[in-house]
Nucleic acid binder design. Structure first.
Length: 758
DNA sequence: CATAACGGGCGC
DNA sequence: ATAGGCGCCCGTTATG
């Protein structure tokens, strides 16, 4: 039986209403007579977010099964998406209670709650007989500088036992004092002899550090390992929920063990310290149980790729210690400078805003005041102002070419530059000082990119996170970052890292020769291409780039990014045909490079992935194996072929990524290996810290009375930690007290000597 | 009021 | 037939 809802009115009986009112009433009636099935069709056809879509389907399933009925308060009203989502909350709550009861009732017999310190001692003694164990901490929250551990889970695989140790401040009198338990655990956690497996080790290492435990013996992290095994795991695919590197999602998917996250079981704002111990046991012990099983699964798979396994264990795992130090060290900001600079920007922004509003309001067709930041309002107004229809407001392609002709566009670009600078950096960063450490902390995510680079930014799972992206700070914002008292910052980059990487991977003689002879690679490419003498294609008399060198830089990027002739033409400002001819001729003069790129394309089409250097890491590009769909000539813009267009676009995208991923990923390996060496050298010396890593650059914090020998150590780290075959590494080293305001090492020492003699 | 998509822009 | 790789974050806009 379909429930049918009707309202007791008809259009005819409404008295004294206007036509509009009649119509509205009729519409209301149509909507009200909608069947529930129709309502579902309507709701599911809406533009729902992925999370909403999942919730809605779940509610529909429960309703169809008769598990849940309509909201009493909404009786008589049309069934809405809002009501469906309210029902989801009700459903989730009752399911949650049922799930918890089921979990406790089905607690495995080898899960054990430890509430006696002697039992903890016995378990630790047993753990010393294991080669490797799984460990997890439960805490009061997610702030690694404030929150504390309220429980520790241990899995002892040979004993086949899973323990949960609740500690104070867990709100149960059986919970043991924190210090007692952690003192017993300390030798185990600090032992190199017993390996440890974690899921998201960074977090647990930091929590232990907060309690004075310096964790050693890290053997595996099931989160970063999963990313090495499948970097596409949480690719934002439509209709699929992201965030699948969570332990519970991985267990559900790979272990066939349906598992709920903490929030799903206890609600968003629940505190682990308040969870009853019978539930805490089954939840906590299951964490390490699942982590261990996931480790076994992952190890078996990775062992089939020995080069990847070796890389994971010797680079990605030890790197986690480095990341912990990097994040905890944090940054010092010059707040006085930020405040002064912020005011300056504000004044400039206000002036520009006034000018733009005055000029553009004339063309703004609305009673509401105009908003310059709204592209929707800005584009028509600006188009009318300059008397030319603008297709978009893209700075590089559309606005910059017009800036010299129209003052308004020049001012607009300046306004956008200033508001971006203050809004994202100068005004925002000062608010992110950590209240306890008094420093600014960034996150370095080793699984933030598909190629193996780090990403940096906020922790998406932690809404309170005050972290920020340290890798995209513009030059002007870097001036806020200063060396801590008594220290200097030393920046060391990999000179032409990606070009050296390509020289090595492609074995292109023209490139290799440039680095052996210590010449400029772009100029050497130009020599190879034009036959002109080196001096004529390198620098101009005033030290700027020659036309040929500029052109080669652009062509280089095009080659690396897989740009088409069309795009290269745009970059060089020449017709497509000319760009294509140029590219063809370039490949002819660099045959090894050309065939290397072609080889990458063939390889990815055949295998659906590419290798990074020495097969240490894969970039999986399954779309490259797809077959192109046929679109008849002239039908390209036909909406009928939209899907085919999209399909073919993905193939092109995957092929473009093949070469780029090899270069970017291999360079990232070099940077990561070098970071481990850098960290080792820092830990041998007082006051030395790795300060940041920005893709092809490492920054150090060292005492300001450093010597030339100290710089030689940093130079050695950069040049000799990871080689690209016979292609040597290069580095430029700078000393600074303010980030970005550097000077060469020799200048630093020269200044110092002058001061000493004065 | 929360969430997500999008245009735009900073870094390498 | 199609148009530059990898990120993160801001403000606006759409949506219910």
């Amino acid at each position: 039986m379909k429930p049918k809802l009707t309202l007791n009115i008809t259009a005819k009986t409404v008295e004294g209403g206007s036509d509009n009112a009649l119509q509205a009433a009729a519409e209301r009636k149509t909507k009200a007579t909608e069947t529930l099935a129709d309502a579902w069709l309507r709701i599911l056809a809406m533009k729902n977010s992925d999370t909403d879509a999942v919730k809605l389907r779940e509610v529909k399933r429960a309703m169809d099964a008769g598990d849940i009925g309509r909201d009493v308060a909404s009786a008589g009203k049309r069934f809405s998406k809002a009501e469906a989502l309210r029902l989801y909350a009700v459903l989730a709550e009752s399911q949650r209670e049922q799930k918890l009861a089921d979990l406790v009732a089905n607690t495995p017999s080898n899960y054990r709650l430890l509430t006696d310190i002697d039992e903890v001692r016995a378990v630790v003694a047993d753990a010393f007989n294991e080669l490797i164990i799984a460990v997890d901490t439960e805490t009061t929250g997610l702030d690694v500088y404030v929150d504390v551990i309220v429980g520790v889970s241990l899995t002892l695989p040979t004993a086949d036992m899973h323990y949960y140790i609740p500690i104070q401040p867990t709100e149960d009198e059986r919970a043991l004092p924190s210090e007692d338990v952690l003192n017993v655990l300390k030798p185990l956690m600090e032992s190199e002899e017993v390996g440890k497996v974690f899921h998201n080790a960074n977090y647990d290492i930091q929590m232990f550090k907060r309690h004075g435990i310096d964790l050693r013996g890290l053997a595996w992290d099931t989160q970063t390992a999963m990313h090495v095994l499948n970097e596409n795991e949480d690719a934002p695919v439509k209709g699929k929920q992201p965030g699948t590197y969570r332990l519970k999602d991985l267990a559900t998917k790979y272990l066939g063990e349906p598992s709920d996250t903490f929030a799903e079981l206890f609600g968003k704002n629940a505190k682990f310290a308040e969870v009853p111990l019978d539930i805490a046991l089954v939840y906590g012990a299951k964490d390490t149980d699942l982590t261990w099983r996931l480790y076994e699964f992952q190890y078996a798979h990775m062992a089939k790729m020995p080069t990847v396994l070796e890389y994971y264990q010797t680079v990605e795992v030890p790197l986690l210690y480095v990341i912990v130090e990097l994040e905890r060290n944090g940054y010092v900001l010059d707040l006085d400078f930020a405040k002064k600079f912020g005011h300056e920007l504000q004044t400039q922004a206000n002036e520009l805003h006034d000018y733009l509003i005055t000029e553009l309001s004339k063309y703004h067709d609305s009673d509401e005041p105009m908003n310059i930041n709204s592209p929707q309002q800005l584009r028509p107004a600006l188009s009318k102002h300059i008397g030319k229809e603008l297709p978009n407001l893209d700075a590089k392609r559309t606005l910059k070419p017009l800036r010299s002709k129209h003052e308004i566009i020049d001012k607009l670009l300046e306004y956008r530059r200033i508001t971006k600078l203050s809004g994202t950096y100068i005004d925002t960063l000062p608010t992110k000082q950590h209240p306890v450490t008094k420093r600014w902390h960034s996150r370095f995510n080793p699984m933030g990119t598909v190629t193996g680079r780090f990403s940096s930014g906020m922790d998406k799972d932690n809404s309170d996170d005050q972290s920020f992206n340290v890798q995209n700070q513009p030059k002007k914002a870097r001036k806020m970052f200063v060396a801590p008292p008594g220290k200097v910052l030393v920046g060391a980059d990999f000179k032409a890292q990606e070009i050296r990487c390509v020289a090595y991977l492609s074995k292109e003689p023209a490139l290799i020769k440039a680095f052996i002879e210590n010449k400029d690679p772009y100029a050497n490419l130009a020599v190879e291409f034009t036959g002109l003498p080196y001096e004529e294609v390198y620098k101009t008399a005033d030290g700027g780039d020659t036309e040929w060198r500029k052109k080669m830089k652009v062509a280089w990027l095009a080659a690396l990014y897989g740009a088409s002739g069309f795009t290269l033409g745009e970059w060089l400002g020449v017709p497509k045909k000319e760009a294509e001819d140029f590219m063809a001729k370039l490949w002819k003069s660099l045959p090894a490079l050309g065939s290397w790129i072609e080889g990458n394309t063939e390889f990815v089409k055949q295998h659906g992935f590419v290798w990074m250097d020495k097969e240490q890491r894969k970039r999986r590009l399954p779309e490259a194996k797809w077959k192109r769909e046929f679109i008849p000539y002239g039908k390209y813009d036909d909406p009928k072929y939209a899907d085919a267009r999209k399909h073919n676009g993905k193939i092109g995208g995957a092929i473009r990524q093949a070469t780029n991923a090899r270069v970017q990923g291999s360079s990232a390996i070099q940077t990561k290996v070098t970071m481990i060496r850098a960290h080792e050298e820092c830990s041998k010396r007082d006051g030395w810290q790795l300060w940041a890593s920005v893709h092809d650059e490492l920054l150090f914090e060292i005492p300001s009375d450093f010597t030339r020998e100290d710089i030689a150590v940093i130079e050695d780290v950069m040049l000799n930690s990871y080689q690209f075959g016979e292609v040597s590494n290069g580095t430029d080293i700078e000393v600074m007290t303010v980030w970005g305001e550097g000077m060469p090492v020799e200048e630093w020492f020269a200044n110092k000597e002058t001061e000493e003699h004065a």
